[in-house]
Design a protein around this nucleic acid. Structure first.
Lengths: 213, 213, 213, 213
DNA sequence: TATGAATGAGGATTCATTCAT
DNA sequence: TATGAATGAATCCTCATTCAT
């Protein structure tokens, strides 16, 4: 009697793996690497803890799979950020604002990034797949910057990566440091007025900076 | 000969407590709250694990003491940031750069802040002492901004807190997101040239932004 | 060949749980709640300490499981106490004596009851299963009392619960207060002559009391 | 310079010791031997934990001092139980009722007795002072019984110790088993009506029993 | 006689992981 | 591919007791 791989079984396997990954993403983002509990991940799943070892090998590998998956997803989402406007100043402002929104939409990811930095990037550093993944996200910036320089509206001593750092730091901050900053300065970054204010501000900052001669 | 309150005994207790606090600060900053081990903290000390419970009551209270102490220390250090220059533009640039340096000098603190944000600020929120501690650090900004506005060189729709957010996010980022950002974009934030570049840049950003009419 | 739910595996779990419960009953009865050691319970078992947490959740829950199990067992044993004699006086005496024997046979249980009372019943009070368990043990008394009243041999101002209190207190006392009473009055409640004397006496007391006009 | 024993110091010492003993009695009665915390005893005192070791030697010796002190106090209180009535039936009923009240008045003591029995009397057994303390409390019973027998109203096959067991078990029970019994049978032994009922009942029981021919 | 600091041994609990089926 | 049972190695915490002054 021969055993044949049933196609639906294959699919079930994929589904189980995907479910574990999704739940693990939540739990790691929620509690950090050390704080996350393998038991909790399993419990929030329809499968058992044993499957984590079956599919991923252990907590560490699961965490790394979560990291990789999250970065891959973000990369794809970023590539969908399209800013098509002829005026580079308008385009730059839009990009800043879209990035702002984008971070708000992916808070779990930003928490994962914070967590990974707490671990000094030791896990992401072992993810060769991310290393070979095409360098992210600065091509749009490159292009806007180039057009702005051509038109003579942008300063010429700034590179795409510089702008990316400025925008990223600001956008990450609103999510990653929300709690302590909010507590100490009595601001609520989630309040809609404050959020709109901050969204406008990052455009002002970047455009103001870049258009300085 | 008069009997005086034995200062050495008093000091021994104080010393033990202080040593525990110092080591705990290191370990928590290193490994996070869940990742930190009470045993490790004790081992790095001249005393025993038991003393943690004697002086602080437990891991959680020790962590909160670390948080409080770190914030208090930072507050004091911040208050020493003096920027006295008549020209508000120069002053603003200096403040940005000093803040940049200041963050570099207190990386453990910034890691603690990241960690606390991963915990959604649940511990800092219970530190009433921090709540009542005078609102931090914007008075210098207030003053520079006011002078700049008077002189007509700064835009008038920006508040001190706004500037603080921009500067803070950038300065925190260089420390807190160093690992993942460095890995993905192949930059080394600790390399001296890069560091100088970024130091200059935060001045450019803030001044460029604020001097936009 | 049909696949059946593996009864042996199921049973192994049940066996482990049951063994833990049995040993825990001994140890708690021996040393009290605070005095009992989780380690000791585990050591007397073929399994490990870890299993206590796996099956019960903790020391407290294990203790409560022990309590519940003990009460349930006693209830069943009590229901087997049958006194069928036409003469209510004879029946009453027999019931008293059987209860006396019954207490002697379940000394661990009585120790557990003492222990739980030291804790002011805080654990038993949380055992809803015991609360909903049918009220125990007075139905036999009810019936004997009713027959005795009908025949005019028993006083009519006494309820089953009253008789139960008198019998219980006496029977519990011989077990629960054996050591201090024995020491102070130089009696040995375990000595067979003394035991027979006391067994006869509880019958005398109850019958004498109930047959008083 | 000579050090002289100050008389008030002597008295302070006595006071400290007495306070420790009083508080320890409370705490041991409250929590049992294993459950009681040396720290808690000290904290409830104006002195420090060190004094327990200074005055008593350790937890165990403190507990034994508590036991001894409690028994001595009870003995004295018992000796004040006077029942002077010519009619032995009335006297016996009174004695039962006074004993009932007496137990209600000394619940901490009864808890201590329960606790000591949980420990199988191992501590009281080492208190030689209690052993040599005159045999307690049956002299009054002896006398009432003798008068009752003389008058022909009491049965003759009952000794003082027997009566003492019956009364004691009942009176101890109302205090020592209050919680579990109350829970299971839904009775409240502290409710005044129930208490009065039970007080009358022990008189009925004893008198009914003793006056049976 | 008194005190605050200190401690080692033990005690309860948790965790990631593996085994048997 | 899946599962419930099992586990050893930590991990946090507590306790009675002693030390230095």
């Amino acid at each position: 009697m021969t055993t044949q791989p049933r196609p639906d079984m294959q699919r079930d396997a994929e589904r189980t793996r995907a479910e574990l990954l999704a739940v693990a993403t939540e739990v790691f983002a929620e509690s950090g690497y050390s704080g996350a509990r393998v038991d909790e991940i399993a419990e929030r799943t329809r499968t058992t803890k044993r499957m984590i070892y079956y599919y991923f090998g252990g907590k560490e590998q699961l965490y790394m799979a979560v990291l990789e998956n999250a970065y891959r997803g973000i990369r794809e989402a970023e590539q969908r950020l399209q800013v098509d406007h002829v005026d580079p100043v308008v385009a730059m402002r839009r990009l800043a604002e879209l990035t702002f929104d984008h971070h708000l939409d992916h808070q779990a990811f930003i928490r994962l990034v914070s967590i990974e930095n707490i671990h000094r990037g030791e896990y992401i550093g072992r993810l060769d797949s991310l290393r070979t993944l095409s360098r992210p996200a600065t091509s749009v910036l490159d292009e806007i910057l180039a057009r702005g320089r051509e038109k003579g509206v942008f300063r010429t001593d700034v590179e795409a990566l510089d702008v990316h750092i400025v925008i990223s730091s600001y956008c990450v901050f609103q999510v990653a440091n929300r709690y302590t900053f909010g507590f100490l300065f009595d601001v609520d970054f989630t309040e809609l007025g404050q959020r709109a204010h901050m969204r406008r501000m990052i455009g002002d900052v970047v455009v103001g900076w870049l258009t300085t001669r």
